[in-house]
């Protein structure tokens, strides 16, 4: 199955690091970066196909529409079934982790910073395994 990696974070620097790391680790050769959650939703709605999954690295704390609001919007629009979402946060608040599992599209919780090692671990995650074989 085809998949596309989207990084969503309001910090350009974080997006840059994520992009470079994904390319370097071979997680994705062409990850896309979004600084704004609304834009991301528009992009997804314009690019859905039944044969493709969006693997999204989603920052929780963003101005305007935050990570939680983003996931709610996806559910409302029925787009969540095309997405595997990793909730990214630099917080060490355990309640964030608990909240993340309540969203169907959220398949993981990743604490920042992202590393090559973490990306390699994610490749073996049950939902993602078919995408990397």
């Amino acid at each position: 199955m085809d998949f596309e990696v989207l990084n969503v974070d309001d910090d350009k620097m974080v997006l840059f690091i994520h992009e470079k790391m994904m390319i370097h680790s071979g997680f994705s050769s062409s990850p896309k970066s979004f600084e704004d959650a609304h834009e991301t939703i528009t992009y997804i709605s314009e690019h859905i196909t039944e044969e493709k999954k969006f693997v999204i690295f989603l920052d929780v704390n963003m101005p305007d529409l935050d990570g939680w609001g983003f996931m709610e919007e996806l559910e409302k629009k029925g787009l969540d079934k095309y997405c595997y979402i990793f909730v990214m946060t630099s917080s060490i608040d355990p309640s964030d982790k608990e909240k993340a599992v309540t969203y169907a599209a959220a398949i993981g919780f990743v604490e920042k910073p992202l590393s090559v090692e973490k990306l390699n671990d994610l490749k073996t995650k049950e939902e993602l395994r078919p995408l990397f074989n």
């Binding site: 620097m13 690091i17 630099s90």
Partner: peptide, 17 residues
């Protein structure tokens, strides 16, 4: 701890990169 975690995680990410 939240405010400190954000720049700290960024530094760690950059070094990792």
């Amino acid at each position: 701890s939240h405010e400190m975690r954000s720049p700290a995680s960024k530094i760690l990410g950059i070094i990792e990169l």
